[in-house]
Design a protein around this nucleic acid. Structure first.
Lengths: 335, 335
DNA sequence: CTGTTAGCGCTTTCAG
DNA sequence: CTGAAAGCGCTAACAG
């Protein structure tokens, strides 16, 4: 049993006080370079690492941030985490991950477990299953918080989002340019600004080109895969769209399946464009054009904003950061 | 400024001692139900949550585990994290994430930052860029550690892996059954058991079917995309394989690209099978058959093992847990 | 069943 | 420049 390597041990071995060691380790201006060097040398030699719990307790700084998101196994969120981690590492911060699985209750439970000083700040992309803005408007007062992608618009907090309206408009126009006259919209995230903006962009583009804009052309996302498939089938049969804009990735698979069943060919009979963040996009079926959000950059931006707040450098910072998505047109290369 | 809500405050308001409150909160058998109820009621009313730093410091328990992996933005690892998080939540644990980006130095830095009591245990999938078993054999003595997927075989620690040899054998046999006579192997993770086992499975299958097994048919993974593309091009031109088994996902894209350039048709001229964990596998180019690891289950299994160790329930536990991968044969459905 | 007490390892006045 | 001392919030002997 070797002695534990803590600040006390260092002090004993060097015959100086604990306070001096602490200050030396923190590179305080009060300590002579000579003493600092002695401390640093021994610390390295004994492989000293400070006890985080002790320093948190005393200093109220955890060097930790939390990321609360619906799910990590998702092309968008895993890339966003990558961006967040990248920034956190630069600041020597640790990153906690929580998955809500779109469950508002879990979301609240997780978040509540974080406001007791476990973390210095939180990055979150809210669940779409319940609108509880009261909860969040309270929360932002208690802990530094940055929202990304899935946000509440009216909240007094930093929000990093993408140009959903504009890109949905562009995507719709792309379909129109491809000759589509009757374009359907597969509607997801309807309780969130992102979803609403995508719908609005679609509608606006239809309007600008004097195309039909009927509720019957819109299919809302449902938790049940069967229901989605059923609704898409009904859409295809009854409405016979010649173009489809899917506002979320989850609609793509049932879309292909239904079309195959009905002997409808994508993209000859129906042209399909979907929001998607597949990192291996080129591996996709080459007939799918996608709208891709800059997930990695969103993560970096959100984390960067949080650190600005943590370092009190957020004076006059813009609360609404909007990054640009990309419309990736894929031609069927036929391999 | 309201008084901080801590154990002391609860004690004062209830006119009992701090110790009693602490025990009541921890549901100690020493405390009467009546007192417990008083404490619990007030705690809930004041929205009390324990300060984690303080309890860590005293109890040496952090309720936190760390996951150290090459990258989160990866279909395998993001699913594994999902599984880990699932289990952690059941035990009310928090999950820290660290990405090494295949960089051994970062890997060591991260891990070192964890052995000072920041976490109760670590789950890791080691980087393949450097073989440093000495480091890890030391580490496992200092902190509860479970390896998953990317492991060092000779380590005295729990390792959760997949049946790489068997499935590579099966995948190779599948190619043989499809009529391939000259099968190439794209070799990744060569410093790790997983990579070696995949190669061995491939070789064994060739041997069993008396097919050519030449070094010239094997292409080793290189960090540079260009080099990989160049090597694959040379392989296709000079060796003219009629089947390819890719042991990692990263080879798939250059493979398609090179073949298209050379006017080689997949799967007519060359049949391709790759290890891959694309969650949206059905969206893939339908000509790609994949070997898919049970990433989510691996995460759950690894986390489960770690908690067994943390709860000292690891007596006689098997150190080598091997889960089964699946060969997913995809037919070209032609949509 | 309840309370007293002594720290966990570190930071931070304040005194020298 | 260095050190003594207090205490962050909580837990765990030990006494009663």
């Amino acid at each position: 049993m070797s002695e534990p390597v803590n600040i006390k041990r260092l002090a004993q071995e060097l015959n100086i006080s604990i306070a001096t060691v602490s200050k030396a380790l923190n590179d305080s201006y009060e300590i002579s370079l000579k003493t600092k060097n002695r401390v640093w040398t021994l610390a390295k030699q004994l492989n000293y690492t400070p006890n985080p719990a002790a320093s948190n307790l005393r200093s109220h700084k955890t060097k930790t941030i939390a990321v609360v998101i619906p799910c990590v196994a998702n092309n968008f969120f895993s890339l966003a985490i990558k961006g967040i981690e990248e920034i956190a590492r630069r600041y020597d911060y640790h990153v906690l991950i929580y998955q809500t699985h779109e469950n508002s209750e879990m979301e609240v439970n997780f978040t509540n477990s974080l406001i007791n000083g476990r973390v210095d700040g939180i990055l979150t992309s809210i669940s779409s299953s319940l609108y509880n803005i009261e909860y969040y408007s309270n929360l932002v007062k208690k802990v530094p918080l940055v929202f990304f992608d899935r946000v509440y618009e009216d909240l007094d907090a930093v929000k990093v989002t993408t140009d959903d309206f504009e890109i949905a408009y562009q995507a719709t126009e792309h379909l129109i340019e491809c000759g589509c006259k009757r374009i359907s919209f597969l509607y997801g995230l309807e309780h969130l600004p992102a979803g609403k903006a995508r719908l609005a962009g679609y509608r606006e583009a239809l309007k600008a080109h004097q195309l039909v804009d009927e509720d019957a052309l819109i299919v809302k996302y449902h938790e049940s895969e069967q229901v989605n498939a059923f609704n898409i089938k009904a859409l295809m049969k009854n409405q016979k769209p010649d173009g489809v804009l899917s506002s979320i990735e989850e609609f793509v698979l049932p879309c292909y399946d239904v079309c195959r069943d009905l002997n409808i060919h994508i993209p000859n009979d129906v042209k399909l464009v979907s929001f998607s963040n597949l990192s291996t996009a080129r591996l996709l079926n080459p007939s799918l054009t996608t709208v891709t959000q800059p997930a990695f950059e969103i993560g970096m931006e959100a984390a960067g904003s949080l650190f600005k707040i943590l370092h009190k450098k957020d004076q006059g910072m813009d609360q609404n950061v909007v990054l640009k998505s990309t419309l990736i047109k894929r031609e069927s290369t036929g391999f």
